[in-house]
């Protein structure tokens, strides 16, 4: 499976957290708020300007700026999870 940056998920799409780039200044913070290896993350919605983007992780909604989200690589799940979207 190929891993892609978290930012490549569009709203409604899910992925599994693979790695967080070492260059990320908030690597530990991201781990703390739930972006641990193997965790499922779902892209929820973008802000009106397209950045930041809100993600669902471990049942909480967290907004990340694109620069930070692109440091997280995920393995995309193919199935869409929200039926009405």
């Amino acid at each position: 499976m190929n891993s892609t940056p978290l930012t490549s998920l569009s709203p409604g799409e899910s992925g599994i957290v693979n790695t967080i780039d070492n260059s990320s200044p908030i690597k530990t913070r991201l781990r703390d708020i739930g972006f641990t290896n193997g965790a499922t993350v779902r892209c929820e919605f973008a802000s009106p300007f397209g950045d930041p983007i809100a993600y669902k992780i471990k049942n909480t909604t967290v907004a990340l700026r694109k620069t930070d989200a692109s440091d997280i690589s995920v393995i995309k799940k193919t199935r869409r999870l929200i039926p009405w979207d």
Binding site: P25, L30, T61, R65
Partner: peptide, 11 residues
Amino acid sequence: LPSSFTLELPP
């Protein structure tokens, strides 16, 4: 630089 920030959107 703009620092990274994580913003939790509570229920």
